[in-house]
């Protein structure tokens, strides 16, 4: 019972954060809306029993990505015209597209209800089997992410320095 109430509460919080992202004028408020959505999603993951993904969500998304984003917003000029006029002239077609997509996906979801996905012999998610599998079966993928991050750092420096490294 409590879990169901919490599920609806955090889902409502996630939706509210997403709506704030659409209507807020200043990017900092949009970033705060996104952070609240991500925290609500982390709470939903914890409710589902996948605590490790909830921790990943808080550490990687809220802790790293969004802090980076907030820093960049603080770096930029607040008198930018895009801070005053929120919407481009694609407002009507965009709203139509999103409404059509939402209706299609909702209709699909309503048609395929209740099918059990649990494979025979599938157990609940537990941290210990995940940790063992993560560092035994997926160690190569884990190491490849570090290679990817190095590539990204080099690429970011190359982008900022530009052609010939004028004013990097």
């Amino acid at each position: 019972m409590t879990e169901t109430v919490l599920l609806y509460l955090f889902s409502a919080a996630a939706l509210a954060g997403a709506v704030v992202m659409l209507i807020a004028r200043h990017p900092m408020r949009v970033a705060l809306g996104l952070i609240s959505t991500m925290l609500a999603l982390a709470c939903l993951y914890a409710l589902l029993g996948v605590h490790v993904i909830a921790v990943f969500q808080v550490l990687i998304y809220v802790g790293a990505v969004m802090v980076f984003m907030v820093f960049v917003i603080m770096l930029l000029d607040t008198r930018d015209p895009s801070f005053v006029a929120r919407y481009s002239r694609l407002l009507l077609p965009g709203a139509l597209t999103a409404a059509v997509l939402a209706a299609t996906l909702a209709a699909l979801l309503a048609r395929h209800h209740g099918g059990r996905l649990r494979p025979p012999g599938g157990a609940d998610f537990h941290l210990q089997p995940f940790s063992v599998a993560f560092l035994r079966d997926y160690w190569l993928h884990f190491e490849l992410t570090s290679v990817l991050l190095v590539v990204v750092v080099v690429a970011a420096i190359a982008v900022i320095r530009g052609r010939g490294g004028r004013d990097g």
Partner: peptide
Amino acid sequence: CLGLLGVIVRRN
């Protein structure tokens, strides 16, 4: 869908 709407309609 809310995210897609945001990508299409926002200017910033």
